[in-house]
């Protein structure tokens, strides 16, 4: 297993009144445990508010968990910030609007000293072509691109640190359908090319079915069902999963 998540909980205090008295706890995640096998894709599905994004941020240590532990296999993840990456839902918000594409993509390489200065340009061009963009956009700014193109730039940035593990947090849900299909195929292609492991978060069951090896279904911060993708889709045991499947039809 490349990743073991053990009984992770995240509570947000609910503050009330002018003195910010704690009026209660919102349980965003409640004792969530699962693991991800190397070179597979774990799909996480659930309606909005079920704690998927919170979970993604906790896995990447962007916010702290209230309780619980996360272990990455040291065989794969040696340098945590280099070997794990995330791609967010909204590509319009994920790129620094004041930076050129070249600076955006080479930043992880500079931080982790991936390549020496002389070859950095070639590597950036190479990455852009890998994600299906042309290599001559280096001096342009994010606002000049469409949502799909921006998401490709985000992917190039994530790949720049040569990660082993990527969390894809609803990476295609804000894009239109034709772009969604193309990006989904790009994710699958990149996974094989770079031997990646994915966690793919989505509320769209069709997408999860297409890309995942295993699935967990979340509701209100808990995992209510888990299993191989075929089992879940053919014989869902929970009422909630059945409803989700019906809604997707």
């Amino acid at each position: 297993m490349i990743l073991n998540v053990i009984r992770i909980s995240k509570y947000f205090p609910i503050e009330q009144g002018i003195f910010r008295r704690e009026a209660g706890m919102l349980k965003a995640l409640d004792e969530v445990s699962f693991s991800v096998a190397e070179f597979t894709t774990l799909g996480i599905v659930g309606e909005s508010g079920s704690g998927k994004t919170t979970l993604a941020k906790i896995i990447l240590d962007l916010i702290p968990a209230t309780t619980g532990e996360i272990f990455f296999s040291e065989d794969f993840i040696r340098n945590f910030r280099k070997d794990t990456q995330i791609i967010f839902q909204n590509p319009y918000n994920s790129l620094n609007p004041k930076m050129r594409i070249f600076d955006i993509i080479c930043e992880p390489m500079i931080i982790h000293k991936i390549v020496d200065r002389k070859h950095i340009r070639d590597k950036v061009v190479n990455l852009l072509e890998t994600v299906g963009l042309s290599g001559d956009i280096l001096t342009r700014y994010p606002h000049e691109f469409s949502g799909g193109q921006r998401q490709r730039i985000c992917i190039a940035r994530a790949l720049a640190s040569e990660p082993k593990f990527i969390v894809l947090d609803e990476p295609i849900s804000s894009l239109d359908l034709t772009v969604q299909a193309k990006l989904l195929d790009l994710f699958i292609e990149l996974k094989q090319k770079f031997n990646l492991t994915y966690i793919f978060i989505s509320h769209n069951l069709g997408v999860i079915k297409y890309i995942s090896d295993a699935v967990i279904v979340m509701q209100n911060g808990r995992i209510i069902e888990r299993g191989k993708v075929g089992d879940i889709f053919n014989q869902p045991s929970e009422q909630y999963t059945k409803k989700l499947l019906e809604a997707a039809r």
């Binding site: 620094n96 931080i111 940035r157």
Partner: peptide, 23 residues
Amino acid sequence: EFIQAEKAIGASSARIIMRHLIP
């Protein structure tokens, strides 16, 4: 999200402030 993404890349606080937040 782009600041969150910078954290995930491993950018230091100083780098995030100087190169991403202040500009």
